[in-house]
Design a protein around this nucleic acid. Structure first.
Lengths: 118, 118
DNA sequence: TCCTTGCATCGATAACTGTCGATGCAGTCG
DNA sequence: CGACTGCATCGACAGTTATCGATGCAAGGA
């Protein structure tokens, strides 16, 4: 579990600190950002992410998440996998349960290009 | 042109100022945010947005955009429509050309929930 | 008026996505 | 060991999306 390195590495400074208002996105940056935004392009995934982030301790086990939605457990599992593959969350098994936790750096990477410089 | 009101109105303060780390997203908020993120989930649309935003005057006509990509003109037109329907850009016809311009408030609305509070 | 240019729309098609029930697998508890 | 629970994976199916060429339409110039 905890698949990292699903996305190619990026020049952190390029994506992180240069709002796209200043200079056009390169093809590679656009491709990676698009992959991450795509993970956020579903209402259930957004709610999952916010449930995880706002849960006490900053983490939530799948059992806390399933049942809060009108979709089946395999569907929740699928959405969690999409979030994980996009690098937005991490998962860790502890005993019977699997805990998910948000990766704040990933969110920051997405927010950065959206912020218009003053 | 310039279709507004494609998205239902939202409580501005709820979406805008409450990072989802604090409290879980409501269903309606999640649905609208997902629609906007979906518009950003394509590399071509991200590059289009950054080209428009970084273009001099903060606006670009379609003729500045077509030809910078390996896809046909109708495809570019389609992607611009997606961005417009999501409320991320505005378009205006002036004479022969149609100019697109980013709506900074929309970008800010997307960035807000991603920012983790200190 | 007719032709040209800039852009949008249409219809078709291949690829992708969300969802489900069924199933598999790992860990826990008798 | 055997049963049960929590979660992931599989295979199938319906709905959506990205793309294209063809076409339409508006504005400007000859």
């Amino acid at each position: 579990m905890s698949k990292q390195a699903e996305l190619p590495l990026l020049d952190q400074t390029a994506v992180c600190c240069a709002p796209m208002v200043r200079e056009p996105l390169g093809e590679a940056d656009a491709a990676e950002l698009a992959r991450m935004f795509k993970a956020l392009s579903d209402p259930i995934r957004l709610r999952l992410l916010s449930l995880i982030a706002s849960h006490e301790g900053g983490e939530a086990c799948v059992c806390d998440l399933t049942g809060r939605f009108d979709v089946s457990q395999p569907t929740i599992s699928h959405h969690l996998k999409v979030l994980r593959d996009a690098g937005l969350v991490d998962s860790e098994r502890r005993g019977t349960w699997v805990y998910y936790r948000v990766r704040p750096a990933a969110l920051a990477r997405l927010a950065a290009p959206l912020l218009t410089p003053a």
